[in-house]
C-alpha cells in the first residue's frame, strides 16, 4: 500500500528561497488507534514548490504536515530537509526555521500585531532594531499599513487581516519551508480568494517551499504546483493540477475532483489574476 511519488518544481531546479523536503516511508500510528493515521508515505517536495496536501478530513494530511516540524513524531520512516535528517536536530531549533500557519486562532490574543509577527525573531534573539524593521517590512508585504496595524490586538482585526498577520508571522525569520494547515478555512469565500492571491504572490516573490493542507479542491487547484491527494493515510496521487483533473489515479480521486472536473479544467486554462 506504499505510494511512491516525486514532485518537481515547475520552474525546474532549485530556487534560492526554498528547501527540498523529502519524506521516506513516513508512517504515524497513534497509541491504541486501530489504523495508522499516516502509512508509508514517500514524497519529495522540490525546492520552491507549492505543494498542496488534499483530502477529506481524517485522511492524515494534517498529521503528515505536522511531522515536518516534528509536532508529530513519525513512528516509521525518515524526513529530510535539504538533505539533513530532522530527527537529528533539536525540535525547537528546527521549528524556528520553519514557518507554521494555522487557522486564525493561532494568533496570540495578548500580543499586539507587531509582537505576534516578531515571535520567532525574538526567540532567535534578533536585535530590537532589526526586529522592528522586519515587522514593518512584513506588514507592508501583506499590505497592512504598519502605522495603523502594528499596535492592534488580534481582536481588532477582521478574519482576513488576522490570517494575513498569521502568514507574516510565519515568514518573519525567512524560513525556507512554510507549513500551512487549512489556513483559510475560517474566512468567507471572498476573503479566502484574496488571501489565496496573496499567498500565491508571496510564494512567487520569495520562492519558499510551501506545504499547504486543505480539503477544498478548488483551493488546491488554484494554488498548487503539485497536488498530493491523500485518503486513509495514503498518498493516492501526486501530480500537477491538470494531471489530477485529467487523469485521476483512481475512483476516489475521480469522485473528489470529478463533479465539476470539466469546469475546473477550463478554469485552470484561464490565467489567474497575476499568475
Amino acid at each position: 500500500m506504499t505510494s511512491s511519488s516525486s514532485t518537481a518544481s515547475p520552474n525546474g531546479g532549485a530556487r534560492a528561497g526554498g528547501a527540498r523536503v523529502e519524506l521516506d516511508g513516513v508512517g504515524v500510528r497513534y497509541p491504541n488507534a486501530p489504523f495508522p493515521a499516516v502509512d508509508g508515505v514517500d514524497l519529495t517536495i522540490e525546492s520552491g514548490t507549492f505543494a498542496v496536501l488534499l483530502g477529506p478530513s481524517g485522511c492524515g494530511k494534517s498529521t503528515l504536515l505536522r511531522t515536518i516540524n516534528r509536532l508529530v513524531e513519525p513512528t516509521t520512516g525518515t524526513i529530510r530537509i535539504d538533505g539533513g535528517e530532522i530527527r537529528q536536530r533539536d525540535a525547537t531549533d528546527l521549528r524556528r526555521g520553519i514557518g507554521y500557519v494555522i487557522q486564525a486562532v493561532g494568533l496570540f490574543p495578548h500580543y499586539t500585531v507587531a509582537q505576534n509577527v516578531s515571535v520567532v525573531p525574538r526567540l532567535l534573539g534578533w536585535e530590537r532594531e532589526r526586529v522592528e524593521r522586519r515587522v514593518d517590512e512584513l506588514l507592508r508585504m501583506i499590505r497592512l499599513d504598519p502605522a495603523r496595524y502594528r499596535d492592534r490586538k488580534p481582536r481588532e482585526l477582521s478574519g482576513g487581516e488576522a490570517q494575513r498577520v498569521g502568514v507574516a508571522r510565519a515568514l518573519a525569520a525567512e524560513p525556507r519551508v512554510l507549513l500551512m494547515d487549512e489556513p483559510f478555512a475560517a474566512v468567507d469565500a471572498i476573503v479566502r480568494a484574496s488571501l489565496q492571491d496573496e499567498i500565491a504572490r508571496v510564494h512567487r516573490e520569495l520562492g519558499t517551499t510551501i506545504v499547504f493542507v486543505t480539503h477544498d479542491v478548488d483551493e488546491a487547484l488554484r494554488l498548487a504546483d503539485r497536488i498530493v491527494v491523500m485518503n486513509a493515510g495514503h498518498v493516492v496521487q501526486t501530480g500537477s493540477p491538470t494531471e489530477v483533473l485529467e487523469r485521476p489515479a483512481d475512483a476516489f480521486v475521480r469522485d473528489l475532483v470529478g463533479v465539476d472536473a470539466e469546469t475546473r479544467r477550463l478554469a485552470l486554462e484561464r490565467p489567474l489574476i497575476e499568475r
Partner: peptide
C-alpha cells in the same frame, strides 16, 4: 487556553517553558 494557540506556540519553536510563561 485553546489548544490551537498552544500548538502555534510550539510550532513556532517555543520551548515548553516558553509556551507556559509567554502564552
Amino acid at each position: 487556553v485553546p489548544n490551537a494557540t498552544l500548538e502555534a506556540a510550539r510550532g513556532m519553536g517555543m520551548t515548553e517553558r516558553q509556551v507556559g510563561t509567554r502564552v
